[in-house]
């Protein structure tokens, strides 16, 4: 984007400098064409459809904002995604930290273990939770065999099971984003803290942790946006009370064939996501995650 802005604002003074500006623009072309054709164009069609399908009116949007169903689902979605994000961040942070301070072999080993579940199909992973968490599942059997509980715990079909599975799916990504951010922290800063009197914990608390926060914020937003779109996990592991917006959109589109309504819901989700990202960015500058200046 910046390359294009640079190209249009400053008139090229010399042939060489104009070429220097055109080349980045050319390099962006395939990606831009791809995005335009497969993202922006469908998005525009979706936008048009959300009005046109209801006789060129805001009817679909009226339903969205007046129906208690949509309000509730949207709130559930944001709430579930937020909690899943926070848990994923808390669990991922120590792993990413250990990765950062580990050397070649140990790092490769941990990364392998982090990514093994990532390579397993999401549906298979979700089904595994059914087997683990059921009344006759491994966990309840263990708890009952050891006499900790006498009747099976209700581990499935509630927000607990949805969250635990969502967090499991989100963890590899969260770890890898945090790891990437932590790798960018200058290790000599830790050495500087240590030589100037900070023990390991103090060096972590006063230097490493504050410097890792931009990465945490960035990972948080990415993971949150990803969580908003969860579909299979709440459908299989949740009760209807845990219904998330993606499920509702899916029902509108594929069962009720109400594509106007589905488009409107999709657009509102997109707008809400963008808004949240914008507000978030206002307070926790994301530019730092992309390696920009943190001024």
């Amino acid at each position: 984007m910046t390359a294009i802005a640079g190209h249009t604002t400053a008139p090229p003074r010399m042939a060489a400098s104009s070429r220097q500006r055109i080349i980045p623009a050319l390099l962006l072309m395939p990606c831009l064409a791809w995005i335009s054709f497969f993202f922006l164009l469908p998005l525009a069609l979706m936008c048009w459809r959300s009005f046109a399908a209801k006789g060129y009116s805001f009817a679909a949007y009226t339903v969205l904002f007046t129906s208690p169903l949509y309000t509730k689902v949207m709130l559930t979605t944001v709430k579930t995604a937020s909690i899943a994000t926070v848990i994923a961040l808390i669990l991922a942070y120590p792993v990413a930290y250990v990765l950062t301070i580990s050397g070649g072999f140990r790092r490769a080993l941990i990364l392998t273990f982090v990514f093994i579940p990532y390579w397993v199909d999401i549906i298979v992973r979700t089904f595994s939770w059914l087997i683990l968490l059921g009344d006759n599942g491994l966990i309840n059997k263990l708890l009952m065999a050891t006499g900790i509980v006498h009747t099976p715990l209700e581990l499935l079909y509630n927000s607990f099971s949805v969250l635990i599975a969502m967090v499991q799916i989100l963890l590899p990504l969260t770890i890898i984003i945090l790891f990437g951010a932590m790798l960018r922290i200058d290790r000599t800063l830790i050495a500087a803290a240590k030589i100037h009197g900070a023990g390991s914990w103090q060096a972590f608390r006063t230097v490493f942790f504050p410097l890792s926060l931009p990465g945490v914020y960035g990972a948080g937003l990415l993971v949150f946006v990803l969580s908003l779109g969860f579909y299979v996990t709440p459908a299989l592991l949740g009760s209807p009370r845990q219904t998330m917006i993606a499920q509702t959109i899916m029902v509108e589109a594929s069962e009720l064939l109400d594509w106007g309504q589905a488009s409107a819901a999709g657009l509102v989700l997109l707008i809400i996501t963008t808004l949240i990202a914008a507000i978030y960015n206002r307070y926790f500058s994301l530019d730092r995650l992309w390696g920009g200046s943190d001024a």
């Binding site: 200058d186 800063l189 500087a192 240590k194 030589i195 100037h196 023990g199 103090q202 006063t206």
Partner: peptide, 20 residues
């Protein structure tokens, strides 16, 4: 004796000031 107990001051090549 770990570094933080050696009572040493140090100036690094890239200064390594705490940016925050």
């Amino acid at each position: 004796v770990p570094p933080h107990r050696r009572n040493i001051g140090m100036v690094f090549q890239s200064y390594s000031l705490f940016p925050h």
